[in-house]
Amino acid sequence: MDYFLSSDLWFALLKTCFLIFAVVLPMVSYTVYAERRVSALIQDRLGPNRTGFPLSLIPGVKNDWSPILGGLGQPVADAVKFLLKEDFVPAHVNKFYFWIAPALSMMPALVTLAAIPFGSTIMGVPMVVANINVGLLFMFAISSVSVYGIVIAGWSSNSKYPFLGGIRSSSQMISYELGMGLSAVPVLLIAGSTSLPKIVDFQIHNGWLLMPYMNGHLGWAKTILWIPAVIAFVTFTISMFAETNRLPFDLPESETELVAGYHTEYSSMKFALFFLGEYTAMIAGCSLIVVLFLGGYHFPGIPNGAGEGGWLPFPHFAPGTFWHAFVNACWGLVNITVFFGKVAALLLVFIWVRWTLPRFRFDQLMKLGWLYLFEIALVNIFLTAGILAFTH
């Protein structure tokens, strides 16, 4: 009973609600909008630019359409469409598994976000829902469960195209999870911890793994370690593309071969859950890349929490006063903004890659995972261990 009345539980609930409802779900919606607009720019067309908000309500504005604000209401229209659309369940499916598959695909992506440190502190409260010592292992373990939702969806649909999509997804996930896990080992060796907040703290004091020169003098040890860090970043990012089923690795749902893959038979909110799960997994993957390689919420010159770690001038107040707490909260919000700004930049890279590269053949996909990424990631571990042993 005392646990349910404790402040830690309520702070965790508040951080969870903020992360899911105020950040992730709106970010998912507008990532879809950004993808449609960016793909339109790449393909030299307009994209959604009409569904918006009534600008004529603003005094002096006569036209509801704006080239900048037009289309910003498209995610709202999409959500209403999915909610009101008929939920059609084919008669030939296994209904129980058909119903639970979308939830099994959506939930792991949301749960993995609990271990992500998306900010420093606000009024002494760390901006991470679950601050656990094995945060990286927790994310790998939970994210691997999402493949069950896809496989169950393909099997329970009792249709050949969804079944082929589910089989492809399971083999793809198994193949690239090995490369992704091995790619993260050099980061653990360099930072000396599996705790994600500690990995961020290491980069705050020693420079980002991809840009070690961003914190102080670039010594020769940092210069040498930058090489395996870049290799780990490349292999980890490629594996993340495959884990989130993004082009050029979208073989489980390739429209030109399998209609829509594992969600061919789904409609309405069940299809929307697969859609939300894919984009939430993409946000979680980009967040993990930011934490491991790009310094997390840190940015040179911007203080962390109440002012530690930055060179920007700001007034100092005595601890325990209102203004000290106010400054702490402001810098904490700035750190959260920096973190999700980095995530948004990586999301744009994911979108750009999707609309510029062709899809692999399945044999090419498996060859890349087993004959190249796996070996490169494995050799990179020995390279990192050798450099650390030599420099220390």
Rank of each mutant, 00 (worst) to 15 (best):
Y372H: 09
T356L: 12
L348C: 09
T321S: 06
F322T: 06
T321I: 09
A344G: 13
H324P: 04
M366F: 02
C330I: 14
L373A: 01
L357K: 02
W311P: 14
W355M: 07
A329K: 03
A344P: 11
L368H: 03
L373H: 03
P319H: 00
W355D: 05
W355H: 09
P319C: 01
I336Q: 08
L346E: 05
T321N: 00
V343P: 12
P319T: 00
W323K: 03
A344L: 14
F314D: 03
A344I: 14
R359P: 12
G341I: 07
V338M: 13
Q364D: 01
E375D: 14
A329H: 02
T337E: 07
E375K: 13
P358V: 03
G332T: 10
L357E: 02
R354G: 07
H316R: 08
Q364C: 02
W311D: 08
A344Y: 14
D363P: 04
F339Y: 08
K342P: 15
L333V: 13
V338S: 12
F350S: 11
K367S: 12
W370H: 07
F350Y: 15
L333D: 05
L357D: 01
E375F: 14
D363C: 09
F339K: 04
P315W: 02
R359Q: 14
F340C: 02
C330A: 15
L368F: 05
R361F: 06
L357Q: 01
F326W: 13
L368D: 01
G369T: 06
P358W: 12
F362N: 07
V334L: 10
R354I: 12
N335K: 03
F360C: 08
L333M: 11
I351R: 06
V334G: 03
L357H: 04
F317V: 00
F322R: 09
P313N: 03
L371S: 10
L368S: 01
F317C: 05
C330H: 10
L365E: 06
R354Y: 09
